[in-house]
Design a protein around this nucleic acid. Structure first.
Lengths: 370, 370
DNA sequence: TTGTATGCGTTATCAC
DNA sequence: GTGATAACGCATACAA
C-alpha cells in the first residue's frame, strides 16, 4: 500500500500551486487551457484520486448519497437498488445504506432519520417507500435537504418523486381483460390507506365504466397486500355458486395474486381455463408461478436509476465521470451550478409500465413464455 | 437547520480547551474524572455529534465500512444485510454498499475493488460471496486491509471468515433421513468447484458410511444450484422404474429442491407420501413451498451480524456506542488498542445450523407448520 | 490567469 | 492533567 498521493504532490510534479490543481480538478474555467491539459495529464498518469474526506471537510460535497430503504426482502427492492448502484457506478459518488427495520419498535424510523441528518454524512437522500417518515422528510426537504422519493403509498407532494401512473396502468390492465371478452371482472383492492391501492382501484373502475359496465358489488373485494389476503379473497369468491364466479380477477398486486393461484390450485380450479387471474407489479417471482402470472410490470430498476440521476442532478449537475476510474474532467464551476433543489419546481417522474401477458390470462401463452 | 456544533463550541461551554473535549470523547484516561463528567454532560445536553469527516481527515477511522455484495436477489442476501445493518445501527459506523453485478462484463469485479481501495473511503471491508475477487482481496488483506469474508465457495484461507460447517450439517441432515428409516437416499450435488457443494456431499457420504450403507452410484447425481438443475435431476430419477426410485432425495441446496418439488407436482408424485425431499439453506421461500420444505437452516442474519462485529473489532475494538444516538463514552485510548488485524491469528467463526423439519419429509408435519 | 493564505473539525504532539 | 498548536487534504477568498 503505497503512500497516497495528494494534491500537493501533483502540484509539485506539474510545477504549479495546489490551488491550480484544485481548480483543474473542479473544472474552474479560469485556468489556462494549456496548463489545464498538462495538469490533467499528470493526474491521469499517476492515477491520482482526491481524498473525498478532505473534499467534504473543505466544504464540498461528501460524494455520498444516503439510501433509506425498507427491508430488502421486499420484492421490489433488489431491483430498485440495482438501478441505484448501476447509476452510481459511473459517478464519483458512493451509496450509504440505511436499512430500516419496520419491525423494530424501540429504534423508530425518525431515529434513523435523525442519525442521517445530524451526522451530515450524505449530500442527499433517496428514500425508498419511506412510509411514516415521509412527513419528517418533507420538512427537511424544505429546509434544504436534497431528497428524492420512491413512494407509492401516498399522493406525491412537493418533493421530487419517481414512480408510475397507477391509475392509467390499472386502467390499461382492465381494458386488456375487457378486450379478451371478460365482462364480470373482480378486483381485489389493496389497503385503502395506500395511494397505489386507491389509484389502481380507480383505474379499474374507470375502465369498466368506459366499457359501460357497472361491476356488481360482490366483485369489488377488499384485500390487503399479502398472499394470505389474496387467498382469503379467493376463498370468498369461489365459495359462491360456480355460475356467480367472475370470469377474471384483477388483484391489486402480485402477492395477492399468488394467494389466489395457490388456492385455485388446491381446489383444482384451472387457470386460465376456468378463470383468468392478473396481478400488478411483476415481482421477480411472478414469471415463475404456476401458471406464470400476467401482470403490470413496474420498472423498478429504472425507478432506482432515474431517482438517483435526479438526486445527483440536484446535488451536483456535473457528477458524471469522464473515463471510468478517473476523476472527472473540466466542468462548470460550482458557483454557476443550480444552487438548491428546493428552489426549483418539484419534479415528478412517471415511468411507463407495461402489461406482461403470461399464461394466467392467456391460453395461447401457456407453453410459451417465462 | 441550526448551525452544527463543533468540538470548539463544547470546549467554550465547558470552559476547557478543545483538546480536552477531544480526549473525553475518545476516552483518554488522563482526564480528571470530575472534568470528564462535566464535559460529557454538556455533550449530552447539547446532543453534540462529532463530525465524522473531520475525524477521518485527522487520521482516525472513516467510520465507514464497505459491504461488497452480489446482486440482492440472491436469496440469502437480504437476511445477511439485515444482520449487518442491525449491528451497525448500534455503532457510530455506517455502511457503504458496493453492489456488484455479476452480469456486467465491462466493469469487472476488480474494478469495483480498485475503486473501493484507491478511494480509501472505508475503514474495512465485508465481502459477501466475493467469488472470483477473493484472490485480490487476500492480497490486500495481507497488505493491511481489515477484511472479513462471508464465503462458502472456497475453502477458508487465512482471512477472517464467518460461515457454517457444511459437512457436519449435511451429515446431520442425512442422519435424520436415516433415522426416519430411509435407506436409499439420493444426493443431488452442487457444482464441484464450490466448497460448500463438496463439503455437503462429503457429509452425506460420511453419514451413509457410518450407517453401513454404500449408496448406489445411480443415487449420486451431479446437479447445479438452480431450480432447473433440480428439475432435470428429478426427471432423471423419476424416469427409472418406480421400484428403483430412492425413498428420499437430499438436494444440496433449496433452489434445486424447488425444482424437484415442481417436477414431482406436475407428475403427480406426492411428497412426502411417495418420496421425501429435503434441501439446504432454508431460503425465505422454503417455508412457503408446497409442501413446505424440510431443510438445513443457515443462520444468514447471524452471519451478517457476527461478521460485522468481527470486522469492527479488527478496526476499532471500542466501536460500540453507549447510549443510542450519543457519542461513545470513555474507552481505552487508541494506542492501547490492538493494532492490526492481519497480525492476529485468523478467525474462523462457524455458526450453528439447525434442521428445520417441514412437510416435505414428515407426514405428521403436513398440517402443522410454516 | 495564477499563487498565497486561511479555514473546515478533529486528532495528536508537544510543552507546561 | 491540561492547553496550545501543528497536521490531515482540500477549496476558496484574496492578492498579485
Amino acid at each position: 500500500m503505497q503512500k497516497k498521493l495528494t494534491i500537493q504532490d501533483i502540484a509539485r510534479l506539474a510545477g504549479v500551486s495546489k490551488a491550480t490543481v484544485s481548480r483543474v480538478l473542479n473544472g474552474n474555467p479560469s485556468v489556462d487551457g494549456e496548463l489545464q491539459a498538462r495538469v490533467m495529464r499528470i493526474v491521469q498518469e499517476h492515477g491520482f484520486v482526491p481524498n473525498i474526506t478532505a473534499i467534504s471537510l473543505a466544504g464540498g460535497q461528501t460524494h455520498l448519497i444516503g439510501v433509506l430503504a425498507p427491508p430488502l426482502v421486499w420484492p421490489a427492492l433488489p431491483e430498485i437498488i440495482r438501478g441505484v448502484a448501476e447509476y452510481i457506478e459511473n459517478t464519483t459518488y458512493e451509496i450509504v445504506l440505511y436499512s430500516i427495520n419496520f419491525a423494530n419498535v424501540e429504534l423508530n424510523h425518525s431515529d434513523v432519520l435523525n442519525r442521517v441528518l445530524t451526522l451530515r454524512l450524505v449530500s442527499g437522500l433517496l428514500a425508498i417507500f419511506p412510509g411514516e417518515v415521509t412527513a419528517h422528510l418533507t420538512k427537511h426537504y424544505q429546509h434544504g435537504l436534497p431528497l428524492v422519493l420512491i413512494n407509492d403509498q401516498e399522493e406525491p407532494g412537493h418533493i421530487p418523486w419517481v414512480g408510475i401512473d397507477n391509475r392509467a396502468s390499472a386502467n390499461a390492465a382492465t381494458r386488456y381483460l375487457l378486450e379478451q371478452g371478460h365482462q364480470r371482472i373482480a378486483h381485489i383492492r389493496g389497503p385503502q390507506q395506500f395511494y397505489w391501492a386507491n389509484e389502481r382501484f380507480a383505474g379499474y373502475q374507470q375502465a369498466m365504466q368506459e366499457a359501460g359496465i357497472t361491476p356488481e358489488p360482490e366483485l369489488l373485494i377488499q384485500g390487503g397486500f399479502e398472499p394470505l389476503h389474496g387467498r382469503q379473497c379467493a376463498e370468498h369468491i369461489f365459495s359462491r355458486e360456480r355460475a356467480d364466479w367472475p370470469s377474471a380477477i384483477f388483484a391489486a398486486n402480485d402477492q395477492m395474486a399468488y394467494g389466489i393461484l395457490e388456492y385455485a390450485e388446491q381446489q383444482g380450479i384451472r387457470i386460465p381455463e376456468d378463470i383468468t387471474v392478473i396481478g400488478f407489479d411483476d415481482n421477480i417471482l411472478s414469471a415463475h408461478m404456476r401458471p406464470p402470472l400476467t401482470t403490470v410490470r413496474q420498472p423498478f430498476y429504472e425507478m432506482g436509476h432515474k431517482a438517483t440521476e435526479l438526486l445527483l442532478n440536484m446535488i451536483d449537475p456535473d457528477h458524471h465521470m469522464g473515463e471510468k476510474g478517473t476523476v472527472k474532467g473540466p466542468t462548470r464551476p460550482r458557483s454557476e451550478q443550480t444552487p438548491l433543489a428546493s428552489q426549483e419546481a418539484p419534479v415528478h417522474l412517471q415511468l411507463p409500465t407495461s402489461l406482461v401477458i403470461r399464461a394466467s390470462s392467456d391460453k395461447a401463452a401457456i407453453s410459451l413464455n417465462t
